[in-house]
């Protein structure tokens, strides 16, 4: 006890750390990596994620530019050139995709040797290459729009329910349960029957129940975060609920939101394809990956490339999104980041 008291008699000068000047001091123990930079580094360290990111980029670029550069349009019907086989330059010299069927060069037979239909044509003579990329464009557009709607509704709903809690939360959760109690497909089909079929309607049909998942994840995060000490600190400083939600809770939920977003997009793409497959897709002559698969599947036994081409793009697209989502989760995961 005597020792403790001696310390109290030290003067201010004696207590100061020797050789320490706060202004010039630069602490080099911790590198100044920003948060975003660290995420990107971890993301590319994962090979599967890097590959899926590249695949995704390629698909998006093709979806944007391929229809523009193609000499055909997605709706141009040509009764002369129906069900043409695949013909791709360079590869045709190797003896594959050279436009022959059972040894007969279909292109020479029709007298169009100067034309190339990379993915062949369908039963109305439309170029499948162009239609696949237009379809990818539409599918991506629908999926991203629907998921953005999910995010907007789901994040708002989840944050309000999680933050205010109590009775508000109780009522909001019961509403969700009622909504999820009705089978998804019935809501969608009724909506699509009641409204003009088209991109906005399909987006709405996907979003009308899709946000529930997002809101649940956001609510769980907010419930977890709102009793954190930094939120308490903010409250003791007099912060309004709006400030706490936007400044503290939203940025810390962002990782989860991005991950859920990444997993929702392929889900929405698939659901759109599914709707198209049961005949509730975008109206003809518009194409989406789902309607293309639906069309191609009818003649799958005779002309398998008509279904395989859009199906391959759909598969790669979904796989890429899922792998990217996986990689992002590893990179963003807040549990690993607190040191």
């Amino acid at each position: 006890m005597k020792d403790m008291q001696n310390v109290q008699h030290l003067t201010e000068e004696e207590r100061r750390l020797v050789g320490y000047n706060a202004d010039e001091f630069v602490d080099e123990n911790f590198s100044g990596h920003s948060y975003v930079k660290e995420i990107i580094l971890t993301l590319f360290a994962n090979k599967a994620t890097a590959i899926s990111l590249i695949c995704l980029l390629v698909i998006v670029l093709f979806a944007i530019f391929a229809p523009m550069l193609s000499p055909y349009t997605y709706k141009e019907i040509n009764s002369k050139t129906t069900n043409m086989p695949m013909r791709i330059p360079v590869l045709e010299d190797l003896g594959i995709f050279d436009g022959t069927r059972k040894g007969v060069d279909m292109y020479a037979k029709k007298g169009i040797e100067d034309q190339y239909h990379y993915f062949g044509t369908d039963n109305l003579g439309r170029d499948i290459w162009t239609r696949v990329w237009v379809g990818t464009r539409i599918s991506l557009l629908i999926a991203v729009l629907a998921v953005v709607l999910d995010v907007v509704i789901g994040v708002t709903y989840g944050m309000v329910a999680g933050f205010f809690g109590g009775k508000i939360d109780m009522i909001m959760q019961r509403l969700i349960e009622i909504l999820t109690g009705i089978p998804n497909l019935i809501i969608m089909m009724l909506l699509l029957l009641a409204m003009e079929p088209g991109i906005p309607t399909i987006c709405l049909a996907l979003a009308i129940t899709g946000w529930v998942n997002m809101s649940r994840i956001v609510r769980a995060q907010v419930l977890k975060l709102k009793s954190n000490e930094y939120v308490l600190a903010s409250r003791t400083l007099g912060a309004s609920p709006k400030r706490i939600l936007l400044k503290h809770l939203l940025p810390n939920t962002m990782g989860q939101i991005i991950i859920t977003f990444m997993f929702s997009v392929p889900h929405a793409i698939f659901f759109e394809a599914f709707l198209a497959f049961i005949g509730l897709g975008v109206p003809i002559p518009m194409a989406s990956l789902g309607t293309l698969i639906n069309d191609g599947y009818r003649s799958a036994m005779l002309y398998p490339y008509q279904v395989l081409c859009p199906a391959a793009v759909l598969s790669v697209l979904m796989l890429s999104f899922n792998l990217l989502g996986d990689g992002l989760r590893d990179a963003i995961d807040p549990q690993m980041r607190s040191m």
Partner: peptide, 13 residues
């Protein structure tokens, strides 16, 4: 107020 856990009391973002 100054809080107990210095990590938990600072917003990581």
């Amino acid at each position: 107020m100054i809080f107990q856990d210095p990590m938990a009391s600072l917003n990581p973002r």
